[in-house]
Computed example of a mutant assay.
Amino acid sequence: MNDAEPNPQIWVDADACPAVIKEILFRAAERTQVAVTLVANQWLRTPGSRHVRALQVQGGFDAADDAIAERVRPGDLVVTQDIPLAARVLERGAEAVNPRGERYTTDTIAERLSMRNFMDELRGAGVQTGGPAVFHARDRQAFANQLDRWLAARASARPSGKPG
């Protein structure tokens, strides 16, 4: 990576991101000096850190998603539960993971989009599909493991002795 190339960073679709996941990200930002940006259409409290910032976007359907998709660069990581946003992120050469630690990949995103659209159709037809599963400690651990993998890959790609 040359000096003109900005360092990869983490973008968080923060409106629906669990607080425990944000805390993991805040600690990782301090530990590794990686930039973490929370994007939401509401004001967010962030720790006093030069590595963490919040970007408040105007309300509106997909405003936070659009803001992330416009700013993300190849090598960045996006934390989102939104499958269409994950697809957009992958198209831009970035990586995406949901707060439960499930990676979105170019191999699986089409199937996930199809399933999402099918479930939307069922809900539109009045079928009760239930909500998301309860967030467990194993989900938090799976997320932390995926984050550690991304951070390790980022560290190995950086010239030695150069912080994030």
Rank of each mutant, 00 (worst) to 15 (best):
N145Q: 14
V78P: 02
A152C: 07
A94F: 11
E70Q: 15
A19H: 14
V12G: 02
W150V: 04
E5L: 14
L151W: 07
P84M: 02
A54L: 01
W43R: 14
G75Y: 09
I24N: 03
G93M: 09
R31N: 14
T46G: 01
L122A: 08
F135Y: 15
E70G: 08
R100L: 11
F135D: 01
V52T: 02
A144P: 01
T46S: 00
V89D: 02
T105L: 04
R138I: 10
N117R: 15
T32R: 15
V97N: 03
L113E: 12
L122Q: 13
L85V: 07
A35E: 14
N2D: 15
R50W: 05
R149E: 15
V79F: 06
P6A: 13
A86Q: 00
D13V: 03
V39F: 07
N117D: 15
G131K: 11
I83L: 09
V78M: 07
G59K: 14
Q141G: 03
D13E: 07
D66P: 00
D65H: 04
R88P: 00
D139F: 02
R100N: 12
V12E: 01
Q141V: 11
E30S: 13
P8G: 10
T46E: 01
G164W: 09
V34R: 14
L25W: 01
G126E: 09
R149S: 13
T46L: 04
A4W: 11
L25E: 00
R53T: 10
F26V: 08
V97F: 08
L25D: 00
V36Q: 02
W43D: 14
V57M: 04
G101N: 06
R73W: 05
F61S: 14
N98S: 10
A19E: 14
P99L: 08
K162M: 13
A54M: 04
Q9V: 08
Q42L: 11
L55R: 12
A96Q: 09
P159S: 11
S160R: 14
P159F: 07
G101K: 07
D62Y: 02
A144Q: 08
A69T: 08
I21P: 03
R123P: 02
G101Q: 07
V89E: 02
H51P: 00
E121K: 14
R31D: 15
P132E: 13
R116L: 10
A87E: 07
R31T: 15
M1I: 07
R100Y: 10
E95R: 14
N2I: 12
R100S: 12
R103N: 08
A4S: 11
R71H: 11
A67G: 05
F135Q: 04
R27Y: 07
V57H: 01
R45H: 12
S160W: 08
Q58D: 09
Q58K: 12
A29T: 08
H51A: 03
A35H: 13
E111P: 00
I83G: 02
G75M: 11
D120C: 05
A87K: 05
P84V: 03
A142W: 01
F143N: 00
A125I: 01
L113F: 05
N7G: 09
N41R: 13
R27P: 00
F118Q: 13
G161T: 06
D15P: 01
P6H: 11
R53P: 00
K162S: 12
P6F: 10
A86M: 03
A125F: 10
V127L: 11
G60H: 06
A4V: 10
F26D: 09
D120I: 06
G59Y: 01
V12M: 04
G130T: 06
L147I: 03
A29W: 05
L25N: 00
D65W: 05
